[in-house]
Amino acid sequence: MSILYFFLYLLLVTIIGLLYMGAARKITAHIQNRYGPPVYQPILDVLKLFAKKDTASHGIMHSLGPVIAYTGIAATLLFLPLGNHTPLLHFNGDLFVVLYLLVVGPLGMALGAGESANSNATIGIARALSMMLGYEIIFFMATLPVFYHYGTASIYRVIQAQGAFPDWAAILFPISFIAGLFALQGLMGEKPFELVVAPHEIASGPMVEYGGKYLGLLQIWHAVGIIVETGLFVDIFFGPQSILWFFAGTFIVFFATVIVNAVMPRFRIEQAVRFYWGLPLLLSILGILQVYIWR
């Protein structure tokens, strides 16, 4: 029974993620003075992709790549508290479990895309991994003061320790929060850090050789990814006390990134990495200093 509950939970989050993607397209379209597709369009896309026959595969790892990617993000989701709502098998959602599981997704995609022997895909992966050297560390450093302040490594306990509006970690640690926002933009792979996919340069990068059900899996990976990434951010900085607040928070954060995405141009890869090693790094270090001073 509980296993069924799991599947339903996962399905729900996937659908919500897809709806977010649709919303993003709609928002972008409005900013660019277009009408845009309906919000549920991504769901239709995914269904269509899954239904497609005759998909090209370059080998076993190429096929398994998207599977592993979705595995990784789904497992992460199961360790991430959605506000005060926690899945069955959680143990207070330890930060490091989440952070390390979060990498499984990109790794799976990278392994799969690598086997296709398409240089575009490989370049995309190289960019993705290099970007991690930028945003992951900033994200980590931005969240560290929060965990240190509340004396726990559990995301769930961090949420519980925060209260309603003025007790948010975002307000306690504004500098870290801003650094975290920078990192989130990279984590989501939105412009100006949209280097991995970069359709105009490397033909959507790792995705270039994927079609049909593989692309479908990657789509739902991306959809859950949106929830997990923004959710992690919201959990840590806003401490949502209910699942509704959680989704509201994620949507607001996502909305912000989408707007930035819509109006920004794209960095070059070395610019992006170097950017992260500038101001955001400084901010995150300042955030750490702040928690030291507070204590």
């Binding site: 296993i3 799991f6 599947f7 996962l10 899954f50 239904a51 497609k52 026959k53 005759d54 998909t55 090209a56 595969s57 370059h58 080998g59 096929s63 998207p66 599977v67 592993i68 979705y70 595995t71 789904a74 497992a75 199961l78 360790f79 098998l89 599981l101 499984v104 049909g212 059900k213 593989y214 479908g216 899996l217």
Partner: peptide, 22 residues
């Protein structure tokens, strides 16, 4: 959990349309 979700992903992979070797 990783095993379970892998099983799920694999399930999605298997029920979806066929693929050929390129």
């Amino acid at each position: 959990v990783m095993g379970l979700t892998f099983a799920l992903s694999l399930f999605i992979y298997l029920i979806a349309g066929k693929s050929y070797r390129a």
